[in-house]
Amino acid sequence: MSEMFLEKFRALVPQYLEDPWQPGDGISAEELDDALEEHAFTIPLVLREFYLAVGGSELMEAYHFFWDPEELEVDDEGFLMFLEDEDEQFTWGFRAGDLRVPDPIVYRKNNARGEWVSEDGTFSEFVFDMFDWVFTEDED
């Protein structure tokens, strides 16, 4: 399997945590496969590489909380949910029909209203923008 995003995600560790990337910052392929084996769905390549790169790092809980691989689930509206804000007001996910797309569009759900809306960007764009916003805001 070709790696499209792995090195870019690994680069987030030194960029935002100011330490060199270490294997413990990610989840091994074997651990990830074990965590995902109970699911009836396959995760997109970009999410797989995100977990491999930073699934064991502090970035998983930097302002918002990325779900551990075994916690992933598809809701009743057909969205694979992977992220939640600290107040549980919003959840982010992919359309289940887009899971074979290597880097699918991200949607946000307002948990109070139950409405999913497009973030108008792919997972990789969303993640890089989110971390930039989180860590830039912390500096201000």
Rank of each mutant, 00 (worst) to 15 (best):
M1D: 12
M4K: 14
M4V: 09
F5S: 06
L6N: 04
E7H: 05
K8S: 14
R10I: 09
V13D: 01
P14E: 10
P14F: 11
Q15I: 01
L17M: 12
E18R: 13
D19G: 00
P20C: 02
P20E: 11
Q22P: 00
P23G: 11
P23D: 09
G24F: 09
G24T: 13
D25C: 12
G26R: 04
G26Q: 03
I27M: 05
S28P: 05
S28K: 00
E31L: 04
E31P: 04
L32E: 10
L32A: 12
D33V: 04
D34K: 02
D34L: 02
L36Q: 11
E37V: 07
E38L: 11
H39G: 04
H39C: 00
A40C: 00
F41Q: 08
L45F: 01
L45G: 01
L45A: 10
L47W: 06
R48P: 00
R48H: 08
E49L: 06
E49Y: 05
Y51P: 01
L52F: 03
L52H: 03
L52Y: 00
A53F: 04
A53K: 04
A53T: 02
G55W: 01
G56I: 03
L59V: 11
L59H: 06
E61I: 13
E61V: 14
E61K: 10
A62I: 02
F65D: 05
F65C: 03
F66D: 01
W67A: 11
D68M: 04
P69W: 02
E70H: 10
E70F: 05
E70Q: 10
E71D: 11
L72K: 01
E73F: 13
E73I: 00
E73N: 06
E73K: 07
V74K: 05
V74L: 05
D76W: 03
G78C: 05
F79S: 04
F79R: 03
M81S: 13
F82R: 05
F82H: 02
L83P: 01
L83K: 07
E84L: 04
D85L: 02
E88Y: 08
Q89K: 08
Q89H: 08
G93K: 03
G93F: 06
G97F: 01
G97K: 10
G97H: 03
L99Q: 08
L99I: 07
L99A: 09
L99S: 08
V101C: 12
P102H: 13
P102S: 15
V106C: 12
Y107N: 11
R108K: 14
N111W: 00
N111R: 15
N111T: 14
A112E: 15
A112V: 12
R113D: 15
W116Y: 12
V117L: 14
S118D: 13
D120T: 09
D120K: 14
D120N: 15
G121D: 09
G121A: 12
G121R: 15
T122Y: 09
F123I: 07
E125H: 08
F126E: 06
V127K: 09
F128R: 06
M130I: 00
M130K: 10
F131R: 04
D132G: 15
V134G: 10
F135Q: 13
F135V: 13
T136N: 13
E137W: 13
E137H: 13
D138N: 13
E139M: 09
D140V: 12
D140F: 13
D140G: 14
